[in-house]
Computed example of a mutant assay.
Amino acid sequence: MGDNPPGRNPMQRFANAVSSVVEGPVIWFREKVVEPNRPTYYWYHRKMRRVPTIDECYTDDAVCYLEANAQFKRDKMVESEILSILRQRYEDCVHYETPDHVPKCKLLLDQYNKAAENWFIKYGDLGFVGDVRDAFMKQKHRMVWERRHGPVGSGMRETNVPA
């Protein structure tokens, strides 16, 4: 209501008075009744609560397994989108810096390659129907391999060397 400055002539003052008489109750109703009783929805930045991971669930707890699987699927979608954003940034850099893009876009390419490697370590070879148990078993097998043979990709140790 106090948003309108006082008019310089009688016609402007009359228009401001009519406006405040018409808009005043509407603005009051919206600010005092509607907005305090409206729930807040954060559509674009909704934060889902973190649920227990599969290693924290009991073997016969179906609800915990379903929540952990849903969390795993959400994490996979988020990390896939991050990977596609990094790929798009690199492609945009190559497109923009075309004649000498190799040195200028090297940082973006390294970031993308590291993210793609980490994504593949976690989700690669699971297929479309891979779930949280498959990913957990994959992680367990990788840890056993690294304990026996060293980091993946470094070659196997000698068989006669004690671990």
Rank of each mutant, 00 (worst) to 15 (best):
S19A: 13
K47P: 02
G2L: 05
R38Q: 12
D134H: 06
K106D: 15
A17L: 12
E79M: 04
F120E: 08
D61K: 05
E158N: 09
N160E: 09
G24F: 02
E23W: 03
K32G: 02
N118P: 00
K138E: 15
N4I: 12
K47F: 03
D3K: 06
K140L: 04
V63G: 07
F136D: 15
K32Y: 01
V22A: 07
R87P: 01
R142Y: 04
Y41P: 00
F72P: 01
A116Q: 12
E56T: 03
R49M: 07
L86K: 15
P36C: 08
Y44R: 04
F128T: 10
G130E: 12
E81T: 09
V129W: 13
A116F: 14
Y123K: 02
G2I: 03
V144C: 03
T40M: 00
M1W: 02
Y90W: 15
N113K: 13
I82E: 15
E23P: 00
E23H: 07
M156T: 07
E81M: 05
S154H: 08
R13Q: 13
R13N: 11
L108F: 07
M77S: 13
V152H: 03
P52W: 09
V63I: 13
L66D: 13
N37F: 06
P6N: 04
G124N: 06
H141T: 09
R89P: 05
D55I: 05
V152Q: 11
K122T: 14
Y44G: 08
T159C: 01
H141Q: 13
K76V: 01
V63K: 06
Q12L: 12
Q88S: 15
S20V: 11
K76R: 14
F29L: 14
Y123T: 06
K122N: 08
K114C: 02
V78K: 13
R38Y: 06
K73L: 13
Q111C: 04
V78Q: 14
P162N: 06
D100T: 10
D134C: 00
K47V: 11
N69E: 14
A62C: 10
E158L: 11
P10W: 00
N4A: 12
P25K: 12
F29I: 12
E158K: 10
M48F: 02
Y123C: 07
G155Y: 06
N69Y: 05
P151L: 12
R142M: 10
Y41F: 15
E146V: 00
N9K: 09
V144Q: 12
A135R: 02
K76M: 13
K104L: 14
E79F: 00
D60K: 03
S80N: 15
G7E: 05
H101N: 05
V51N: 01
R133W: 11
W145N: 09
R148M: 14
A135L: 09
R49Q: 09
T98Q: 10
T159K: 04
